[in-house]
Computed example of a mutant assay.
Amino acid sequence: MRQLIEKWKNYAAYQSGLLAVVCGIAAILLVTAQWLTQPVIAQRIAEDQNALLHAVLNGKSYSNSVFSQGETINFEGSSFDLFPVKNDTGSVIAWVIRGEQEGYSGPIRYLVGVDTRGEILGVRIISHSETPGLGDKIERMKSSWILGFNHRSLTNTPLWAVKKDGGDFDQFTGATITPRSVVKGVHKALQALAHQKENGHE
């Protein structure tokens, strides 16, 4: 009996040790994979943003490397990246705001182009995980809904909400949460920029 117990203990110790080794190897592989893919993911995001830049600026010409000159600000619990858009003389002619708002299935990352009067030039979605066929209509490739933000501002749009909530923006059939989230995020992005400019940051 004692021999059987000792044999079982040795077997259990062996199994535990083997499990620990396997877990250790898996952790190393996971960290290595993340380390290797992180630059690729960052590069892809940068490429996507640059591809969207022309759209969010509505074709406006610029001379600077927009995404290399930004600053991060916090406004009412949310973080925004502000990027100045400059002409040949170095004057700011517009702003690009990068923000994130929680949607139905996860965070929705977006870009907003705003002119010096505070009027939206364009909005585009960088990434999201919303329901295909419903929430993904926030993508320009899927519908024209996102164009409804063009020419909007804090002054000419008193109620930033979907029509179901009494606002001016359309919602999607069967997917109200997604457009509601985007409207909320874009509105807050405009407020963040206005607040930053009011405090002397041009």
Results as ranks from 00 to 15, higher is better:
Met1Arg: 11
Met1Val: 08
Leu4Tyr: 05
Leu4Ile: 13
Ile5Lys: 11
Asn10Ser: 06
Ala12Gly: 05
Ala12Val: 15
Ala13Cys: 11
Leu19Gln: 10
Ala20Lys: 07
Val21Trp: 14
Val22Glu: 08
Ala26Ser: 11
Thr37Pro: 05
Gln38Asp: 07
Gln38His: 10
Arg44Ala: 11
Ala46Pro: 13
Ala46Asp: 15
Asp48Pro: 02
Leu53Tyr: 03
Leu53Cys: 04
Leu53Pro: 00
Leu53Trp: 03
Tyr62Ala: 03
Ser63His: 12
Ser63Glu: 08
Phe67Met: 12
Phe67Leu: 13
Gly70Met: 01
Thr72Tyr: 06
Asn74Tyr: 15
Ser79Tyr: 11
Phe80Glu: 00
Phe80Val: 02
Asp81Ile: 14
Phe83Tyr: 07
Phe83Gln: 06
Phe83Val: 03
Lys86Phe: 03
Ser91Trp: 14
Trp95Pro: 01
Ile97Gln: 08
Glu100Cys: 11
Glu100Leu: 08
Glu100Ala: 14
Gln101Asp: 05
Gln101Met: 09
Glu102His: 06
Glu102Val: 11
Tyr104Val: 14
Tyr104Phe: 14
Tyr110Asp: 10
Val112Arg: 15
Gly113Pro: 04
Val114Arg: 13
Val114Trp: 11
Asp115Ser: 15
Gly118Ser: 09
Glu119Gln: 12
Ile120Phe: 05
Leu121Gly: 05
Leu121Trp: 07
Ile125Lys: 02
Ser127His: 12
Ser129Gln: 05
Pro132Ile: 09
Leu134Val: 03
Gly135Glu: 00
Gly135Lys: 00
Ser143His: 11
Ser143Glu: 04
Trp145Gln: 06
Ile146Ser: 00
His151Thr: 13
Asn156Gln: 09
Thr157Leu: 09
Pro158Val: 13
Lys164Tyr: 08
Gly167Pro: 12
Gly167Arg: 11
Gln171Lys: 11
Phe172Thr: 03
Gly174Asn: 01
Ile177Pro: 00
Ile177His: 12
Arg180Gln: 13
His187Glu: 05
Lys188Ser: 04
Ala189Glu: 01
Gln196Gly: 04
Glu198Met: 08
Gly200Thr: 09
Glu202Gly: 13
